[in-house]
Each structure stands twice: as C-alpha cells, then as structure tokens.
C-alpha cells in the first residue's frame, strides 16, 4: 500500500466523519490561544457537561436508527426530574421515587411509540406535540417555580466524586454508553434495529417483529430521557419546568451531526456520542475564549446548518452517482 492510497483513505474517513474533523479542528484552534482549555479540570468539566445530553442521545439513537426520531425527550427529562423531586419531598424513599420517575419516562415513550408505530403518525410532529404537553404537566406540578429537594442524600447520586476528582456522572455515562454500544453492535435486538431502519418492508418479511422492536425503541428513549432528568435534578438538587427547553432539538441535532442518519439504519452509539460531544466542546471552547452567549448561539446555528447541510450534500452526490 503506497502512501498515496493511505492518504486517500484517510481523507475518505475524515470526510465521512465530519464531526471528528470538527473536534480536531477545535482542539488545534485552541492551541493558538492561551486559555484554561488544556487543563485536566476543564476536560473533566467537558465530559461532565456531556453526560446528561449524552445519556438522552443513547436512547434517541435507538429511535433514529429505526427511522423515526424523538423530540419529546426535553419534556420527558423535565417531567421525570420534577416527579422525582416532588416524590422525595413528599417523603417517598429515594430509590422508589427514582423508579417512578423512570417509569414515567417509559410510559411517555410507550405512548409515543403507540402513536408512531401502531397508528403510523409522523414521529417528529407527534413527539413535538408530546413535548409541549409534558412541559405543561411539569408547569402544573411545580406551579412554574423551581423546587428544591429537601432530602440532601438525593444530591449524592450525581455529585459524588470517584478516584479523587472524577465526577461520578462520567462513570454513569460510560456505563450507559458501553451498554448501548454492546446492544447495538453485538445483540440480535440491536442488529434488528438497523434492519428496520435500513428497509422496513424487508425487515418485516424477514420475520423480524418490527412493531415490537420499534415500539421498544421509543420506550427505551423515554426511559433514558427520564434517567437523564433524574441525574440533572440530582446534580442541581432541584427541579424546574424550564429544564430541557431546547434539549429535544439539540440532542436530535447532535445525533444527526454525529452521523446517525435520519433515513435510518446508519450510525450507532459512538457516532451519536461524538455528535453530542462536538456541540458541548464547541460551547466549552467559546466559553474559554470568552465569546458572548448570543454569538455562541449564532456560531452553533452555523455549525448545525453546515454539518447537516454537507451531510445532505454527500447523500445527494451519492444518489447522483447511483
């Protein structure tokens, strides 16, 4: 193999992984500035800030792989946090409260799944409406005030540190990431998800129980969003109906940026994680450089449009070649 073919191959891989390219570009860019970016503390901070959206993204990946999407995760996350904190304040033991919150997320996912899979509605609009509905329920439950958790041990769930200074949130993220990576790559269930997203009819006639698997993807997505909601509330030691306003859109964007295609059947846990990581890393870089929040929003919008746009563009070229 000559150096030239290696170069071409590297170029191909990099073009395919635009998100990785973006990460490398950002890290190189930060070398030119004298900031706190390259400190252990900052990197721990980046990883910690990725966790909540990262965990949601794992669930959303399942739905996106099945050629659907879930925009209600923001509302689910918010509601599960509210339920957990309210129940704990009411005197319910913490594990039971967390379990109830998780179940609420799974229930939301089940309803979404029923409407999308069994009633064949358009997933993004149904989940968008569901997000609004859940937001309303959270507002009703909290009277639109942030509520603090009175039981201090709830805080321990997400604020403990292991091995000296590593936040435990990173460990949770790692465990869930590995779990999803394993499920999607090495189990029948995960491979069936890819099959359903790749070609629904073929999967159906191959004997895969498409309805059940697609439905379960939504339930998992809801449960993961609920888990993220519990962790977020535990980290903040409070719950509020304003959490997760943009989360639904951002996480779905992140998943697609990473390379999990909306057409279904392409992508995976690692890709989605990278996609979310790009968005968070960018926020962190801009924070380090002291860029104002409005300009950050502008740059984030531009990056989203560019990465997704080039994704579409490469698919267009592929269609033209075919």
């Amino acid at each position: 193999m000559s150096t030239k073919s290696v170069l071409i191959k590297t170029k191909k891989i990099l073009l395919k992984q635009k998100a990785v390219l973006a990460i490398l570009a950002m890290i190189v860019l930060m070398l030119f500035f004298d900031t706190q970016f390259f400190t252990v503390y900052n990197w721990l901070n980046i990883f910690r800030s990725v966790t909540v959206q990262g965990i949601i993204a794992m669930g959303v990946t399942m739905t996106v792989l099945c050629a659907a999407c879930d925009l209600s995760v923001g509302g689910t996350m918010c509601l599960s946090g509210v339920i957990a904190v309210l129940m704990i304040n009411f005197g319910v033991p913490i594990p039971i409260a967390c379990l109830c919150a998780l179940l609420s997320g799974a229930l939301v996912g089940a309803v979404n799944g029923f409407l999308v899979v069994h009633q064949r509605t358009e997933p993004f609009i149904i989940t968008l409406g569901m997000g609004t509905l859940l937001k309303g329920i959270s507002q009703l439950l909290t009277d639109a005030h942030p509520i603090a958790c009175t039981n201090m041990s709830f805080m321990q769930i997400a604020n403990t540190k292991i091995l000296g200074q590593i936040p435990i949130l990173i460990l949770y993220m790692l465990v869930i990431f590995l779990l999803f990576f394993w499920i999607l790559r090495f189990t029948n269930y995960g491979r069936n998800c890819y099959a359903i997203g790749g070609n629904y009819e073929v999967a159906k006639y191959s004997g895969i129980n498409t309805l059940a698997i697609k439905w379960s993807a939504f339930i998992i997505s809801g449960a993961m969003a609920a888990l993220a909601g519990i962790l977020l509330s535990s980290r903040m030691n409070s719950a509020s109906s304003v959490y997760g306003d943009n989360t639904g859109m951002l996480v779905n964007c992140g998943v697609v940026i990473g390379g999990t295609s909306f057409a279904g059947g392409v992508g995976g846990a690692a890709e989605s994680f990278i996609g979310i990581f790009v968005l968070q890393l960018m926020t962190n870089c801009m924070d380090c450089l002291g860029i104002g929040s409005y300009v950050q929003e502008l740059l984030q919008g531009i990056i989203i449009v560019l990465i997704l746009g080039f994704d579409c563009y490469s698919r267009l070229k592929k269609r033209e070649h075919a």
């Binding site: 919008g301 531009i302 990056i303 449009v305 997704l308 746009g309």
Partner: peptide, 9 residues
C-alpha cells in the same frame, strides 16, 4: 434540522 439551525442563526 437545517431550518432549526437557520432559526437559531
């Protein structure tokens, strides 16, 4: 998602 990005711009 592209129009969402445009909206935030």
């Amino acid at each position: 998602f592209i129009t969402y990005g445009m909206s935030s711009i």
